[in-house]
Computed example of a mutant assay.
Amino acid sequence: MKNVVARGRTALVERLTRRPPPIDSLSVLGAVPIPMVLLDQNNGFRYANQAAEQFLGMSMLQLAQIQLDALLPLDNPLFHIIAQVRSTETTISDHDLNFESPRLQKRHISVYVTSLVEEPGCVLLTLQDVSAARALDRQIAYRGAARSVSGMAAILAHEVKNPLSGIRGAAQLLEPNVLPQDRELTDLIRDEVDRIRDLVDRMEVFGEKPVDRRPVNIHRVLEHVRRLAQSGVASGVRISETYDPSLPPVWGNRDQLVQVLFNLVKNAAEAIDGTPNGRERAEIGLTTAYQHGMRLAIAGSSQRVHLPLVVTVRDNGPGISDDIRPHLFEAFVTSKS
């Protein structure tokens, strides 16, 4: 019995003191999903894990035959960081570096460079491409801002419309009981309430309510805008039309298209002061055309949309001043006093 207990204790001690088999460090580095590169004292490639091979676009067999300056120009900040690490034997990190050369095109790279005590002159590079994270941050920020604006617009529309309905109803109740000379004032109240309500309705385009889009004849929209302008803001301006009749319908919202184009024509009419540029008569030109290859980026996304239909609103006024031109597409920028 004593022999059995002794053998059991011996087996337990051996099991507890037994060391696991050594792990190959290169196998561990190879499994890391972050690009890691080991450079010798001459910046030659001694090791690159699989993630680094994908990052650099070359296999380890190819990298072993070149040095770092074959991939990057010597004036790249990475060489200065490597030199600092070798001289100080510390770890240095830097962010938002660009690797641009005929062989390598990487932007927004974070770099961590560490010296190896066991291998004098050798440095370990850890590379992280943060461009995808930056793009995701931009999208999140854009969507957050859009939600804030849409929420504010919805609250404002709700809070403003309710008292407007009461004011308009009160004006209608007062109208039969006022003197004829005062009835003009009740009409003015109703008209102004309707105008404010229309402004609020236009603010609701910032909300998340889907916009009703359908095929729209852009030339009918432009003709409607021309009639509106010539009966009001551009009554003394000649409006010429040059349309391409072969254009297909535009997928959009008719009312929004009318509003955008009318604002452009209104701005053009206000920009023409008297006789523009010495000409005899102010003129606004409305033009449609097909322009192949026109692509625009969507805000908050890397997607680009093909937009071949071009609508041009052109006036023969003095043009945009140089101080306004750099800020032309910023909100609320104007040269009006």
Rank of each mutant, 00 (worst) to 15 (best):
A170T: 14
F99C: 03
Q128D: 07
D187I: 06
Q41P: 05
P77I: 06
S302H: 10
A268Y: 08
D273W: 11
D96L: 12
H219T: 08
L72S: 02
V117H: 14
L261G: 01
N177R: 08
A234D: 09
P215F: 06
V111F: 02
N177H: 11
G293S: 10
V130L: 03
L286V: 01
Y47N: 05
E330N: 09
Q259E: 10
I189A: 10
H80V: 08
K106Y: 01
Q62A: 13
A31R: 03
D129V: 02
N253L: 03
E14W: 00
P180Y: 08
P326W: 09
I155K: 07
K161Y: 00
A234I: 12
P21T: 11
V113D: 00
L72H: 00
V265K: 07
E330P: 00
Q139H: 07
G252C: 03
R15Q: 12
I320E: 02
T288S: 02
P215A: 06
Y142R: 08
Q50Y: 02
I239Q: 07
R7K: 13
L29N: 01
V5F: 12
H80E: 14
D191Q: 14
E283F: 04
Q181S: 14
V200S: 15
P276M: 03
S115H: 06
I218L: 02
A268H: 10
V111P: 03
S321N: 08
Y290V: 04
P20A: 11
E330Q: 13
A145N: 11
N42R: 13
A52W: 04
Q128N: 09
S231Y: 05
E119R: 14
A70G: 15
G236H: 09
I272H: 00
R214P: 04
L68W: 02
V123W: 10
I23W: 07
M203G: 13
P176K: 10
Q303E: 15
V13Y: 05
S335N: 13
L38V: 14
I189L: 15
L222E: 01
M58L: 13
P210I: 05
A146N: 10
L174S: 10
R190C: 11
D96E: 15
L257I: 08
R19Q: 15
E119T: 14
R15A: 14
D94R: 07
V111G: 01
T114M: 11
P245H: 12
V200F: 11
H224K: 14
R86L: 00
I23F: 08
W251A: 04
T288H: 01
L72E: 00
S337R: 15
D255S: 11
E283K: 08
F332R: 10
R7H: 11
F55H: 05
G285Q: 12
A31E: 01
P73G: 07
I218C: 00
G44F: 12
R46Q: 13
N263E: 15
I92C: 08
R143M: 14
F329I: 04
Q41R: 13
R7A: 15
T91I: 12
R147V: 09
S246I: 06
D137R: 08
Y47F: 15
L257Q: 14
Y142T: 13
R279F: 07
R226Y: 03
I34G: 02
N253V: 00
N98H: 09
L247K: 05
A64R: 13
Q62K: 12
R220W: 01
S150T: 02
L39Q: 07
S131V: 05
I167Y: 06
V130S: 00
L296W: 04
T114P: 00
V305K: 09
Y142W: 08
I81H: 01
H306Q: 06
L116D: 13
